[in-house]
C-alpha cells in the first residue's frame, strides 16, 4: 500500500491574497490509520508550509481541530481518510468567520460560553473549615454527560439557527449552562434564567437535533435546549406568581 495516494482538497483563504476562499488539491501518501489531521500536517510539513490549521492533542480532547470534513462538522483527529475513498474535502467550520484557511474566529463563541456563568455559584457560602461540598455519585450522574463538552464548536457549525441568528447563545453554551444548573452544589439557576428566556435564548431552536448528532463527546445539547424550553415556558407563565425580587432580569 506504500504507493497509494489520497486526494485532500482544502478550502484555502489567505486574506492578503485571496479575495474569496479557493479550493486547493493535495496528494498525500495514504495509510489505513491516517487521520485527516495527520494528512493536513503532512501537507503543512512536506508540501505547503503556508497551510494554517489549529490542533493540539490529536486525541479528541482539546477541541481545537474542528472543521467541515466532507461537509460535516468533525474533529480532524477523529476522522480517518479510509472512510473517504473518493477523496476528502476539508473546509473551515461553518457559521464561524474564517480567519485564515482552516482557522476560524472563536471570539463570539467564547463570549457566549462566558455569558452562561459556567462555574458553580454556591447555594450558600461556606467557610473553609466547613469543608468541601459533598456530592453523591448519583448526583454527579445527573450532569456528567453535559460536563463532557470540549468546546469544539462542532454543534454551532451543525445548527442552522446559529447560522441564521449569530447572536443565538447556541447548543454548546446551553449544554454547559444546563450542566451547572443540574449540579447539586450549584444555586445559580435563577441567575442563568434571564439568558435562557431571552430573545437570544432557547427559543431560537427549532428542534433540528443535528447538534447532538455531530457532537464528538456524546453530549446531548439538544436535550439541554429542550429542557430549557420547558423551564422557560413555565417561567413565562408563572413568573407573576413569584415575589418581585426573584423575577428574571428580562423585561
Amino acid at each position: 500500500m506504500s504507493a497509494a495516494m489520497a486526494k485532500v482538497s482544502v478550502l484555502r483563504y489567505r486574506p492578503e491574497q485571496d479575495e474569496v476562499p479557493v479550493w486547493q488539491d493535495y496528494q498525500v501518501p495514504y495509510s489505513d490509520d491516517m487521520s485527516v489531521l495527520t494528512a493536513l500536517n503532512y501537507i503543512k510539513d512536506e508540501l505547503d508550509g503556508t497551510l494554517s490549521l489549529r490542533w493540539s492533542c490529536r486525541q479528541a480532547i482539546c477541541g481545537s481541530c474542528g472543521m467541515m470534513i466532507g461537509g460535516k462538522p468533525s474533529l480532524a483527529c477523529k476522522t480517518f481518510l479510509r472512510d473517504y475513498p473518493e477523496g476528502i474535502r476539508v473546509e473551515a467550520l461553518a457559521h464561524f468567520p474564517i480567519e485564515r484557511d482552516l482557522v476560524v474566529v472563536m471570539d463570539g463563541f467564547m463570549d457566549k460560553l462566558q455569558k452562561v456563568k459556567p462555574y458553580i455559584i454556591p447555594k450558600e457560602a461556606r467557610s473553609l473549615d466547613e469543608g468541601e461540598y459533598l456530592q453523591t455519585p448519583a448526583e454527579m450522574d445527573l450532569y456528567a454527560q453535559f460536563a463532557g463538552c470540549i468546546n469544539c464548536g462542532l454543534c454551532y457549525a451543525a445548527c442552522p439557527q446559529v447560522g441564521l441568528n449569530p447572536d443565538f447563545i447556541g447548543p454548546g453554551a446551553i449544554a454547559l449552562l444546563h450542566r451547572y444548573n443540574l449540579d447539586s452544589r450549584d444555586g445559580g439557576s435563577a441567575e442563568r434564567m434571564a439568558l435562557i428566556n431571552s430573545e437570544v435564548g432557547v427559543f431560537n431552536c427549532t428542534a433540528v437535533g443535528y447538534c447532538s448528532e455531530v457532537c464528538p463527546k456524546m453530549v446531548d445539547p439538544a436535550n439541554a435546549v429542550n429542557v430549557g424550553k420547558m423551564n422557560s415556558a413555565r417561567d413565562y407563565f408563572f413568573r407573576f406568581m413569584r415575589p418581585a425580587g426573584e423575577k428574571g432580569e428580562c423585561r
Partner: peptide
Amino acid sequence: MNQALKRSHEPIF
C-alpha cells in the same frame, strides 16, 4: 451581543 436581554414571547406559540 447586546447587553440588555429582552424576554422572548415564543413560549406562547
